[in-house]
């Protein structure tokens, strides 16, 4: 399955693009997809940091299955403040 993964903010800048196209196996999960993106862009985040993923505009766990046509986005930590 092929996905055009959307990147925002820090991830967009680090990848140098707002969209990254990845190919993953038919039974791929969210975790497999995010690993595939990281393999293409090793500087996206340090290895010990989990990248948060949204599927169809909802936060997704790494073991969630993907379906063709899903909108997948990588979500950097949000803005914070105190």
């Amino acid at each position: 399955m092929q996905f055009d993964v959307r990147l925002f903010a820090l991830y967009r800048e680090r990848a140098g693009s707002s969209v990254v196209t990845v190919d993953v196996p038919e039974d791929a999960t969210v975790g497999v997809l995010s690993d595939a993106v990281r393999a293409m862009h090793p500087r996206l985040a340090p290895p010990e940091v989990r990248i948060v993923v949204a599927v169809n505009a909802e936060y997704a766990d790494d073991d969630q299955a993907l379906n063709p046509g899903d909108e997948v986005c990588l979500i950097p930590p949000v803005s914070g403040g105190r």
Partner: peptide, 10 residues
């Protein structure tokens, strides 16, 4: 700098 994003990373 991106706030939060870079606070906990390299």
């Amino acid at each position: 700098r991106w706030v939060a994003c870079e606070d906990h990373e390299f």
